[in-house]
């Protein structure tokens, strides 16, 4: 049984960080903020698409209720009736490729860059 930190463990750390870097690079193309669009999904179905640059506030009703605020080029779930409230704890997201998730409500708020596949923009 090996209970002491060994030099070989650094390889494990390096492997995990390399995987992190690889996944980060994979999602890099979707990060750009010009003309970014906020897409709201519930259970995989898109409900709305709003411009990230127009301030607004709205609610998403489901098993629970999320209050979503878009303000100053950032988006957040600012209030939620879900247990835990992790989605509110996530805070504000502003860069394309980021998403805010409320699992209890099945909601995903996704920021997509200008070249994302957008059918329509409301507002």
């Amino acid at each position: 049984m090996d209970l002491r930190f060994r030099k070989g463990d650094i390889l494990a750390i390096a492997a995990v960080l390399a995987l992190a870097a690889a996944v980060f690079a994979l999602f890099l193309p979707s990060r750009s903020t010009d003309g970014a669009v906020v897409e709201i999904y519930r259970n995989g179905e898109r409900l709305h698409a709003f411009s990230l640059n127009v301030d607004r506030q709205f609610t998403i009703d489901g098993d629970y209720t999320n209050v979503v605020t878009i303000s100053g080029g950032k988006v957040a779930i600012t209030e939620s009736t879900c247990p835990g409230g992790d989605c509110v704890g996530c805070g504000w997201a502003s860069s394309a490729g980021r998403s805010i998730v409320c699992l209890p409500n099945g909601v995903e708020i996704r920021i997509v860059g200008a070249e994302g596949e957008v059918d329509f923009i409301v507002g």
Binding site: A20, F27, G44, S99, E108, R110
Partner: peptide, 12 residues
Amino acid sequence: LMHSIYIGAYLP
């Protein structure tokens, strides 16, 4: 669960 690959952006 979310039918979305974008959540993968959190993984790093």
